[in-house]
Design a binder for these strands. Structure first.
Lengths: 332, 332
DNA sequence: GTGAAAGCGCTAACAT
DNA sequence: ATGTTAGCGCTTTCAC
């Protein structure tokens, strides 16, 4: 397949420079004779030419590769984000390499090192903890775009959803539906995004003159197990709820499981709110409001910032992407 | 951060060879003096050393990188497979780069070219069509492991689930539950995996002395839209079913949507079978049987084959991984 | 026990 | 308009 520039040059008794110029479309600019161009093009047509990225990388000290580090991609949100980002990167000639941390703090640091060692040109990271974030900021001397979690203590560029506003809007819609209380099942307030959603929830309550901070039930893991635990507590203390919001899909999964385990079914009149959209939310017979994150917008914004940084214009902005409410109403 | 081998050698007035030998743990083998070793180790301790992968790749004509091409990763099965495969590859020092085709036939070919151009050492591919498969077999001169879809016309190594057996077992379990007919909603029989599931279904019927081929309803896209269309047809012709099997999760999503749209709810007594497992299947109030694919086993097997091929022992086997049945029973 | 040097294929600076 | 060359950092072969 291959054929190197030098081989082509030799075959045609030309210099590498000449061949390179036409290969790179600079033929006109350097006024390579039409005849030479034709000879080269024909040769390439015949034997092909594929640029050797390793050689190019060695020379230019860049790989035209970007890294993405997320907790996992079996989570639809991160999976979709990865898809959009990969597409956006490829559109500009970058290969994106995706890696998952599985929320393992040490493994995350190792991943960063592995990608830096492979000389990626820049890195998109969803850090697991503040410590991880600080570690990365120290280690990574390349363009870095933080995603999803604003742990503060840095002015590095960051893209996230507008969780406060989203949380508020979601809550207001559930409040408007009438059922009360609207419990808020919150997993892991160590995560800024979760904290912001909670803040939005409280804002909405306050706006409606409600001050029931005891409607908030929290646990310290953002997982199905956490959701199950907390829903069981709720059932113990108050029986079946009329309405609740889960701070994320994994929490919701656990909460629903608890309801089925304890009540034998998920009472259809419960109004449910959740963050992150998924087609299977339609499997619930209930009214379901889901606050969707806009992965496409994230990808565009994050890549823009990266592009600028690669061009030597590092930006320090925090972008908050608007969320979108999806309503599923059950038939009366 | 960096420091090259040559820099270290210069700093210590040694030759690159000596430095390399201790860096690569061949110190004992070549009996480098303890003193020299100490000096080198100390220097590295102090200033660090990171191997330049680009230079190494250029010299050795390999990148220690493998490629994975799947339809998309917003599909949990492929996402999980990608996760497991990435872990397995990293464990052996390979970086995995994941790309999605979105079922775009041309884009898929471009992706293969892009990865080959970047000189990946080998490729795992879920081909979209037979034509794609043949294209890849022609283009890819490197180790290639096909995944998920046995389009035949090749003896290339391939890893897939044992869909026939899985389909049969799933069907038998639904038949045993008593409800009848057990409809089979099948999307896109152009996909070998789907065809095998159907075959398993028919085997089960036959085994039970049932010959109702008209229980099979098919459409030509394996999507929510396909599932919706087909369930609507079923509702038109026979009313609400007592039991059905969906050939994949996307199909099930559409089928459930149709039920809700038409009946206002998903009748709880319907027994549902599906392929691929997902926690949110628990959102259905129904009995749900799901036939789960074992991504971990796929990853292990696929990597093994790849490893062998990279070591110069190309294998031509087709591996069929056993599936696992998950049962969700509703409370009476 | 340690050293020297060629060469992987590309780019960019400098010739003509 | 086209040619020459150095060098990116590594590996490998050969030499003392």
């Amino acid at each position: 397949m291959a054929k190197t520039v030098e081989q082509i040059a030799n075959d045609l008794n030309l210099s590498v420079t000449t061949v390179r110029l036409v290969l790179n479309g600079k033929a006109e600019q350097y006024r390579i004779s039409a005849k030479t161009q034709a000879r080269i093009n024909q040769h390439v047509e015949l034997y092909g030419y594929t640029l050797n990225h390793s050689a190019r990388s060695l020379k230019l000290n860049k790989t035209d590769t970007l890294g993405l580090i997320v907790p996992n991609i079996s989570n639809v949100f991160f999976a979709t984000l990865a898809e959009k980002l990969e597409l956006r990167c490829r559109r500009s000639g970058y290969q994106l390499t995706i890696s998952c941390t599985y929320n393992d703090v040490d493994y995350e640091n190792k991943l960063v090192r592995a990608l830096i060692d492979r000389n990626v040109d820049g890195l998109f990271i969803v850090p697991s903890t503040l410590e991880n974030q600080q570690h990365h900021l120290r280690q990574v001397k390349k363009p870095l775009v933080l995603l999803d979690r604003d742990f503060k203590y840095t002015d590095n560029a960051l893209v996230e959803s507008h969780n406060v506003e989203g949380g508020q809007r979601l809550t207001e819609n559930l409040l408007a539906a009438g059922a009360s209380p609207v419990w808020f099942l919150v997993g892991d307030t160590a995560l800024p995004s979760i904290r912001d959603r909670l803040e939005g929830y409280l804002n909405a309550l306050k706006k409606h003159g409600i001050e029931h901070r005891d409607w908030v039930l929290s646990v310290n893991e953002n997982t199905p197990e956490g959701g199950k635990l907390i829903m069981n507590q709720l059932l113990d203390a108050h029986g079946a709820p009329d309405a609740f919001i889960a701070s994320s899909l994994p929490m919701l999964e656990g909460a629903i499981e608890a309801l089925r385990d304890r009540l034998g079914e998920v009472p259809q009149q419960i109004n449910i709110g959740t963050f992150d959209e998924h087609p299977m939310l339609g499997f619930l017979a209930n009214n379901v409001w889901s606050m969707q994150q806009d992965e496409n917008a994230w990808a565009e914004q994050a890549f823009d910032i990266m592009q600028n940084a690669l061009d030597g214009h590092p930006l320090k902005e925090t972008i908050k992407v608007k969320m979108k409410l999806i309503k599923r109403t059950r038939r009366a």
